[in-house]
């Protein structure tokens, strides 16, 4: 087995609230895993535990078999939930994508031709070339999510952590982002961990699902087995018929 992410008995706490309780999880290289659960289940905290920006109370997190540090973070593309960006902010789309490349370029260095090419290709892959000189705060939520994906791609990461990339988007933008994530997975052969609370938003390439509830992993398995009435009812504490209307 080629484990790229290994969590062992990880507990994360924010003040008096325990966000993750003794989570153990192994993720194989090249896999596409969806993490599903209701609000407050600890899905986002799981991602921040993996990339080391969350405060781990106990347990261990290994990525590529190593403890997380800023060097390892360069290999992890992280797309957080949609950011609130001031429309007057003096940062362009290209500047934001460049942020993803910054740590790979290194301190006290300027981007060379190769870096510029990588940034261009990330911008082209997500289809925002015509927006690249616009202020990022002027874009719609869907476009800003594409910029966030391009920024993560500019890192040329081995792992991508996607935190509800379809939240706050209209139906068309949701489909565009889901299709784009599928395309990125197929073209780049990355390991992707995708967080959502809506089952129908899981991209087609995803084969594994983890159900989280109140800081614990309550179930994991194949996508086909996840569409189980009892499992879903238990996950959302709500009869499946009501869940189906909105979430499946």
């Amino acid at each position: 087995m080629n484990q790229i992410v290994e969590l062992k008995d990880v507990t994360v706490s924010y003040r008096e609230n325990v966000a993750l309780k003794n989570i153990s999880l192994n993720i194989e290289k090249g896999s596409f895993v969806a993490v599903i659960g209701p609000n407050g289940a600890g899905k986002t905290t799981l991602l921040t535990a993996i990339n080391g920006i969350g405060n781990i109370l106990s347990g261990s997190v290994k990525v590529f078999g190593l403890d997380i540090n800023s060097r390892i973070r360069r290999e992890i593309g992280y797309v957080p939930q949609s950011l609130s960006i001031d429309p007057r902010s003096p940062i362009s789309v290209r500047d934001v994508v460049m942020i993803g490349r910054s740590s790979k370029i290194g301190l006290f260095r300027y981007p060379n031709r190769k870096d510029i090419r990588i940034i261009e290709s990330a911008i082209e892959l997500v289809g925002i070339k015509e927006l690249s000189h616009r202020p990022v705060g002027h874009l719609s939520c869907g476009e800003q999510q594409k910029v966030a994906l391009a920024r993560a791609l500019a890192q040329q990461p081995d792992i991508m952590l996607l935190d509800e990339p379809t939240s706050n988007l209209d139906l068309r933008s949701q489909k565009e982002i889901i299709d784009l994530i599928d395309k990125i997975y197929q073209e780049k052969e990355l390991t992707i961990i995708f967080v959502t609370h809506i089952l129908s938003h899981i991209p087609a390439s995803c084969r594994e699902v983890i159900f989280m509830k109140r800081g614990c992993i309550i179930w994991s398995g194949g996508v086909d087995k996840a569409l189980n009435e009892k499992l879903l009812s238990d996950l959302y504490d709500c009869p499946i018929k009501e869940i189906k209307k909105e979430y499946v």
């Binding site: 800023s70 060097r71 992280y78 957080p80 940062i91 500047d95 910054s102 740590s103 370029i105 301190l107």
Partner: peptide, 23 residues
């Protein structure tokens, strides 16, 4: 001048700057 790209990242969003591996 020497750390402009890192400073730009921090001014945009500190959490993202940390997440991409900038000190």
């Amino acid at each position: 001048i020497l750390l402009f790209k890192e400073i730009q990242a921090i001014l945009f969003n500190r959490e993202i700057a940390r997440a991409v591996g900038i000190p």
